Simulated scan of single mutants.
Amino acid sequence: MTKIISSPNCGNSPKMEFIKQFNIAFAKGNVAFLSESVTDDITWNMIGDKKIEGKANFTKAVEEMQFVKASELIIDQILSHGREGAANGIMKMPDGRQYAFSDFYVFQGAKASKIKRMSSYCIEI
């Protein structure tokens, strides 16, 4: 089971709550939620690693990652304004490894809840 620690102001708006739930789904390997949360033409740029384009490729990538679930997710900040949002924090893995992450999101529209573009920075700490 994944322990979730989140800053108290991470749920101040519907979009901030969505970003929080998206990150929780990623930590828990919830492929169905992640896949439903992106547009058909999603672009996911994993900085320094690879770029994934299209919902089918996105779903395949998160399916490949789902077997490694975080033991703890710490969300330090979530920001949201208009069509854009961001989150950063730390994921702790069952084997003791820890990763600091920062994700930047562009939504389909200001009121939309589907992600059109993502840029992810992730480093082992």
Rank of each mutant, 00 (worst) to 15 (best):
T2R: 06
T2D: 05
S6Q: 04
N12F: 09
N12A: 12
N12R: 09
S13E: 00
P14R: 12
P14A: 15
P14V: 12
I19V: 06
I19K: 07
Q21F: 03
F22L: 12
N23R: 04
A25V: 07
A25F: 12
F26T: 12
A27G: 05
A27R: 05
N30S: 09
V31S: 00
V31A: 04
F33T: 10
L34E: 01
E36C: 11
S37R: 13
V38D: 06
V38R: 09
V38P: 04
T39Q: 11
T39Y: 01
D40G: 13
I42P: 01
T43G: 14
I47D: 07
G48F: 11
G48R: 10
G48L: 14
D49Q: 12
D49L: 14
K50S: 02
K50G: 01
K50R: 15
K51T: 15
I52Y: 05
E53L: 12
G54H: 08
G54Q: 07
K55C: 01
A56D: 10
A56P: 01
N57D: 02
N57P: 02
N57E: 09
F58W: 14
F58M: 02
V62F: 07
V62M: 00
E63I: 14
M65I: 03
F67N: 08
F67I: 06
V68K: 09
E72A: 07
I75M: 12
H81N: 09
H81I: 09
H81L: 04
G82E: 05
G85L: 10
N88S: 10
G89K: 15
K92Y: 06
K92W: 07
M93S: 00
P94C: 07
P94A: 04
D95H: 13
F101G: 03
S102E: 13
D103W: 00
Y105F: 13
Y105E: 11
Y105K: 04
Q108K: 09
S113P: 01
S113V: 01
I115S: 08
M118Y: 06
S120E: 03
S120N: 03
Y121E: 07
Y121I: 13
C122N: 15
C122I: 13
E124N: 14
